[in-house]
């Protein structure tokens, strides 16, 4: 597209960009090394030795399994709710121009634009005012609140590309509104919903701040991690859990990237 003899990047720029990327990735790579260290009492570098022992120990830990299962359940349900609400919002905003359209966009973004602690405290006070005991469902509702925005962002971008004449053609050919949605709109926005859903899942799986305020006695995996971070008691197990969390969030992100990469390249743009 641009001039054929593209100028080469100056060395300084290359160096700065490369170092920047290293800065972004080395810390995460270090997690993988520490998961195999034999050191139990400190964060010593270099590790005195490497072992697979802690993988087995972590595998046998009931509390880690409980936290992981809770996190997966919460993330699945929160994603499902966010998918429905986010798609509804996106459909309304992109299909018609109405008074207060901008307000709806702002409203959807607000739970993630405001610091998590504000959303957390507000929801907590709402739940206690309504006498709802803190439980699995309050965690899910809290997560769904801020997951709507990622589904919404992905869906809105795809709706914008979906030509209105396709819908009209479907109507002309005799499909009613539901058939049009099922056979024309859904296949067109499907991958963007999948991508949005995966990002919502990753977001929920990782969330700790809002969860702190909306959870009762249960601990999700991030809450478990946070307790370990504040008062480290079992460093080797935490190292392994950290590695697992990196792997679990990596897959949906990669999948979302490949689902949306041709077309609107905004998979994660809405975090």
């Amino acid at each position: 597209m641009r001039s054929e003899h593209r100028a080469k990047a100056p060395f300084g720029l290359k160096l700065a960009a490369g170092l920047g990327l290293l800065f972004l990735h080395l810390p995460i790579l270090l997690i993988f090394l520490y998961a195999f260290t034999t050191e139990e009492k400190s964060y010593r570098f270099p590790p005195p030795g490497l072992t697979l022992e802690w993988l087995a120990v972590t595998w046998g830990r009931a509390d880690v399994w409980a936290a992981l299962t809770l996190s997966l359940k919460v993330a699945s349900l929160a994603t499902a709710i966010a998918l429905v609400l986010g798609t509804l919002c996106a459909a309304a905003v992109s299909r018609s121009a109405f008074f207060g359209r901008e307000v709806v966009s702002l409203l959807v973004i607000l739970p993630i634009a405001l610091p998590g602690i504000i959303t957390g405290i507000a929801l907590r006070s709402a739940f206690s005012m309504a006498d709802i005991p803190f439980s699995f469902f309050t965690i899910v509702l809290g997560h769904a609140t801020f997951c709507i925005v990622v589904v919404y962002n992905n869906a809105v971008a795809r709706f914008r590309r979906l030509s209105g004449s396709l819908v009209e053609a479907s109507m002309d050919l005799g499909a009613d509104g539901f058939q049009t949605f099922r056979y024309v709109i859904l296949p067109n926005i499907g991958t963007s919903l999948l991508a949005g859903g995966m990002l919502a899942f990753a977001l929920s799986f990782d969330e700790v701040i809002v969860t702190t305020f909306t959870a009762g006695q249960q601990s999700t995996l991030p809450i478990w991690m946070l307790q370990e971070l504040i008062r480290p008691r079992q460093r080797p197990v935490t190292n392994v859990v950290a590695m697992i969390v990196v792997l679990v969030t990596l897959l949906p992100i990669l999948a979302a990237f490949f689902l949306t990469r041709d077309g609107d390249s905004i998979a994660g743009g809405g975090k």
Binding site: A242, V245, V246
Partner: peptide
């Protein structure tokens, strides 16, 4: 990837 990796990790 770093953007979406776990905040706590």
């Amino acid at each position: 990837l770093p953007l979406w990796s776990s905040y706590l990790v």
